[in-house]
Design a protein around this nucleic acid. Structure first.
Length: 491
RNA sequence: GGUCGCGUGGCCGAGUGGCUAGGCAGCGGUCUGCAAAACCGUCCACGGCGGUUCGAAUCCGCCCGCGACCUCCA
């Protein structure tokens, strides 16, 4: 098994050698979306980043169980532990059953993930499907003395927990600092400590989504679902837990506390956090109102966008920055990414047409080892891509007859290209589907261009230029080659 | 206010105590009836001020600017 993979662990704030607890098995849990509205592009970035991680682990030969939850209950509005959850609120707004909301946005989420060519997780558990597991966990935490019940609501006792464990370890914060930073909030009489958070929340008569429990009818709190589901499917201690950086301070901090309080063991060996997507330097988020829906991005139907960009261009654009850096979104950056992506794809086509020689003037092994080196260094996809462009340059030089490659190296180069471009980065060609209409269009354009070719052979440049100008006006880019032509529809 | 991070060439983005990614744009060339496209080549950099060092954009200090988290958020 590969012993060279290093990943940055938020817990230690260092890059560490990746050594799974039970190799070759790897357990990975990633916090999934809350399905009460369409996911925006910022949400997508996290899942695209973990797709890269998942794909690379698989490529290295690990047997990965990848669990990504669907949060379909338990997220409250605001910071008070009362009132309806987001699903019930949205359901009232749209006059739908809460589970209709869940169904609608779960499907939407899956469609988007498919569009981005991400691999499906091994298990995708829902919070509502694991209420009994959450109740069991809460009971255990109470039994261990780290939670208390008040009027049908159960709170986690943070200060008590902190006397035995380090509560703020994931963000390197001390208890005093945390207490200082917490705002004085109204309606908190039921809580003992200001930092205490709800594990189980008592339902009001009008609450739509509620379940019976030892503490009466209610619903699970913000953070317990991930602890319950990760424990159920990956065990009390597993390898990788991931999510967006915004979840680090509260959600993941509380997850550690819950699991530790329940199982008396730290739940996760490596914590991985992906950075945010920004627009004009500010984080993309629902509340800021600066979010793009993936659909708006693909069609270009958004005030901030000049035009649309394909899913693979967007994915490539994201891979060009490191997962722990913020990436800023702009038309210019996307346009540059689009050209780069096209170049990479075209080189792939050229590669398939390349002919081998008796000897090689190029060093493929070097590029290959550089690619692995980049990925082993905390999944450095930008560096990987820079080495892939080195391969592109070599492919084009061979195609121009300025370099040569032997059969063995050619096979090696093809396999390297397939491995990193398609298997690891998870890109694919972005060609439009071959419907009858597009087929007909293609045949017609070919026909017209063949007429132009004839005109050129007869030195009738007036006609050939006229055909070219007319097609160019319609957005068809013509490329003359030695013995014919190529064309494409301008995107 | 507390915790943490960032500031790289026209733009986007890696990385490193000396060997100075990559993409896009620009410029030069090849190809072409002319173009376009494609390909090849190439210029431009590390927020400011000090310090450590033979040497710093990379380490340290201060300053300026920006951002994230501390409240639901990937």
């Amino acid at each position: 098994m590969n012993r060279n993979l290093h990943i940055y662990n938020t817990l230690s704030r260092k890059k560490e050698v990746f050594e799974p607890i039970n190799p070759p098995l790897v357990g990975m849990y990633v916090c999934g979306p809350t399905v009460y509205s369409d996911i925006h592009l910022g949400n997508c970035r996290t899942f695209i980043s973990f797709d890269l991680i998942y794909r690379y682990l698989l490529h290295l030969g690990y047997k990965v169980r990848y669990v990504r939850n669907i949060t379909d209950a338990g997220h409250l509005e605001g910071d008070r532990d009362e009132g309806d959850d987001k699903f019930a609120k949205k359901a009232k707004l749209e006059q739908l059953e809460p589970m209709e909301i869940v169904q609608k946005y779960t499907l939407g989420f899956h469609n988007v993930m498919t569009t981005f060519n991400t691999l499906s997780p091994s298990i995708e558990p829902t919070a509502t499907g694991h209420v009994s597991e959450q109740i069991e966990m809460i009971k255990e935490i109470i039994a261990n003395g780290y939670a208390y019940e008040n009027n049908g609501t159960v709170y986690f006792d943070v200060e008590k927990y902190n006397t035995d464990y380090a509560y703020g370890q994931l963000t390197n914060r001390k208890m005093e600092d945390l207490l200082e930073g917490t705002r004085e909030l109204s309606g908190q009489d039921e809580k003992k400590g200001r930092l205490d958070f709800a594990l189980w929340i008592s339902a009001k008569p009008e609450t739509l989504m509620k379940w019976p429990s030892p503490w009466g009818w209610g619903f699970p709190g913000w953070h317990i679902e991930c602890s319950a589901m990760s424990t159920k499917y990956l065990g009390e201690m597993f390898d990788i837990h991931g999510g967006g950086m915004d979840l680090q301070a509260t959600h993941h901090t509380n997850e550690i506390a819950q699991s530790q309080a329940c199982n008396s063991t730290a739940p996760v060996k490596y914590w991985m956090h992906t950075n945010m997507l920004t627009v004009n330097g500010t984080r993309m988020s629902k509340s800021a109102g600066n979010g793009f829906l993936p659909e708006e991005l693909f069609t270009g139907n958004h005030p901030l966008l000049k035009r649309g960009y394909s899913p693979m261009v967007v994915k490539f654009f994201m891979a060009q920055s490191h997962y722990r850096s913020t990436v800023d979104f702009s038309n210019d950056a996307l346009q540059a990414a689009e050209k780069g992506f096209d170049k990479l794809m075209k080189a792939g086509e050229t590669l398939n047409k390349l002919k081998s020689d008796s000897k090689s003037s190029v060093n493929i092994e070097k590029i290959k080892s550089n690619c692995y080196k980049a990925m082993n260094d905390d999944l450095n996809s930008p560096i990987l891509i820079s080495h892939l462009f080195e391969a592109v340059r070599i492919i084009n030089l061979i195609n121009d007859g300025k370099e040569s490659i032997n059969q063995n190296d050619l096979e090696n180069l093809k396999s390297l290209y397939k491995t990193f471009v398609f298997d690891v980065l998870g890109l694919r060609e972005d060609k439009s589907s071959g419907s009858k209409e597009t087929e007909l269009t293609e045949e017609l354009i070919d026909m017209v261009l063949n007429l132009r070719l004839e005109a050129k052979k007869n030195k009738d440049f007036a006609t050939s230029d006229k055909i070219r100008d007319e097609l160019t006006k319609k957005g068809i880019v013509i490329k003359d080659t030695k013995d014919g032509f190529e064309w494409e529809i301008e995107s």
